[in-house]
Design a protein around this nucleic acid. Structure first.
Length: 266
DNA sequence: CTGACAGAC
DNA sequence: GTCTGTCAG
């Protein structure tokens, strides 16, 4: 074999190798290494209190992990108009969250449990970039949900949120299961199955701030979404989480005790 | 959109 | 164990 042939073969091997690496290698993390690029971070003032002192930020969402329940007690993210894309993406696998020091639950806890691996930050809200999409597949972002609930009324609520974002503009969304004592548990790691899920949507208007919040049982329902609207005070009572706790007390008192349906078109 | 699952490797 | 194609609400 001539020298020239050998070099040509080596070059081809390198190109093919790189191509295989690019297309088939999946890392054990979906995060970027460069933490200085967290441009999507929400104003700290909007984060809820953390019951377990374990707050983690990814590039496109932040959450508080509850080790005893093996899931997040809340996740928070900002949803902007430019996020509302329908980019076609390949579903990755659920993996443990490397940022959760105590290790987030393995996805196998859910296998054969009868419950869905239900996203808290919806994958459908994060289609604008591959990393944003993949980040929602950490097991720190899922909770056991009834199949018909997840694909049904919970899915309809998530679509309603996207509609509001399109109509009103940027939103902040906070969501999670209501974590209590004595819940049903699944898998070897005893992942708790919430009986209720909540969702809080915040937006700024010319006059100030509007908030709408929901609590729904972990089961399918034919009722309209409006039937599940509650005050934020009610969610705080049920979760023992203080949402918007860094805001002034009179700000909280004014916004958290009322329901203003007229400002949210269904 | 929301997912599970069987079967191939 | 990991991945693809197929199927269902």
């Amino acid at each position: 074999m001539s020298r020239r042939t050998v070099y040509t073969l080596l070059l081809i091997i390198c190109i093919v190798g790189f191509w295989l690496f690019e297309n088939f290698y999946t890392p054990d993390t979906y995060s970027v290494k460069d933490k200085s690029k967290k441009e999507e971070k929400i104003d700290n003032i909007l984060y809820p209190s953390s019951t377990y002192g374990n707050i983690v930020s990814h590039e496109y969402y932040t959450f508080s992990y509850s080790e005893p329940h093996e899931q997040a007690e809340w996740v928070a993210y900002s949803l902007k108009r430019e996020h509302l894309t329908n980019d076609d993406r390949r579903r990755p696998y659920f993996i443990e969250d490397p940022e959760v020091k105590s290790k987030s639950a393995d996805w196998r806890n859910y296998r054969g449990s009868g419950y869905d691996r239900g996203h808290l930050v919806p994958a459908g809200d994060r289609r604008f970039s591959e990393q944003a999409y993949n980040e929602t597949f950490y097991t720190s972002n899922i909770s056991p949900q009834d199949r018909d609930f997840n694909a049904g009324i919970w899915n309809r609520l998530e679509q309603q949120v996207r509609y509001w974002c399109k109509k009103y503009g940027d939103l902040v969304v906070i969501t999670g299961g209501i974590l209590e004592r004595g819940l049903e548990e699944i898998g070897e790691e005893d992942v708790d199955v919430p009986r209720y899920f909540y969702k809080i949507i915040y937006r700024e208007t010319a006059d100030g701030v509007e908030i709408i919040s929901f609590v729904m049982p972990n089961q399918e329902s034919d009722l309209p979404l409006q039937d599940f609207v509650v005050t934020l005070d009610e969610i705080e009572r049920q979760t023992n989480i203080d949402f918007f706790y860094e805001q002034p007390k009179d700000w909280q008192n004014q916004l958290e005790s009322r329901v203003e349906l007229s400002n949210w078109k269904f």
